[in-house]
């Protein structure tokens, strides 16, 4: 463990907590893409299959349980508890256009042609594009609530911090995982446009409103 990865995990944790607080306090899921949350649930389920087979640390296990638990709770809030506030008209990204290519790529490009490894690779590739339905929804509604912007900033920062973690681990431990790094770079690049809006607007107390 290193400071970059710890900050990355804390940023990821913060994002999930911000999202849950937004939903619970406002009792509304307006502006939140249920499809992205379903993709994140798929990512965590696929990646944490080894939750019961390989023990790494108490921290690792607790975080995995927390991530899986909260993402399914988020889906429950969106599609059941606060269903009336879910904006399905604007959450119209065709996720099959993500899952099929990502699934195919996981079969073709992986570290080892073994079931668990391919599923892990699928989760890495899927995570890099899982935020697209959410960003697409914001571009369609033309705006994002400030709390949603904080959620996205924390979520985008987590993988950017992981890039720093991989640089550190390469020089400190000789650890290098090309698949995770390439997917992490793609994932972070997808947030760049949003990061720009966040820093130029939200940091100055304005709301994010895209030219619709």
């Amino acid at each position: 463990m290193n400071i970059f990865r710890l900050c990355g995990d804390m940023s990821h944790l913060a994002a999930i907590i911000i999202l849950l607080l937004k939903m619970w306090k406002t009792r509304s899921v307006a502006g939140i893409s249920g499809k992205s949350q379903i993709l994140f649930a798929t990512v965590f389920t696929a990646r944490y299959l080894d939750l019961f087979t390989s023990f790494i640390s108490i921290y690792n296990t607790c975080m995995k349980v927390f991530f899986i638990g909260t993402v399914y709770f988020t889906i429950y809030l969106i599609y059941m508890k606060f269903k009336a506030t879910y904006d399905s008209n604007h959450d119209s990204f065709r996720v099959e256009f993500l899952i099929v290519p990502v699934g195919g790529l996981a079969f073709l490009v992986n570290h080892e042609f073994a079931p668990l490894e391919i599923i892990w690779t699928f989760s890495i590739y899927l995570e890099s594009v899982a935020i697209l339905p959410q960003l697409f929804m914001i571009s369609k509604t033309g705006e994002a609530e400030t709390i949603t912007s904080h959620y996205l900033f924390a979520l985008g920062s987590y993988r950017a911090l992981y890039l720093c973690n991989w640089i550190y681990r390469y020089y400190a431990e000789g650890f290098f995982d090309l698949i995770a790094v390439v997917a992490g770079v793609v994932q972070t690049i997808l947030y760049c446009d949003f990061f720009y809006l966040y820093i130029t607007k939200v940091m100055k107390g304005k709301k994010i409103s895209l030219p619709a």
Binding site: D50, N60, Y162
Partner: peptide, 10 residues
């Protein structure tokens, strides 16, 4: 055979 990194990250 190629080293398969043990996935110790979240």
């Amino acid at each position: 055979d190629e080293f398969v990194p043990k996935h110790d990250e979240l």
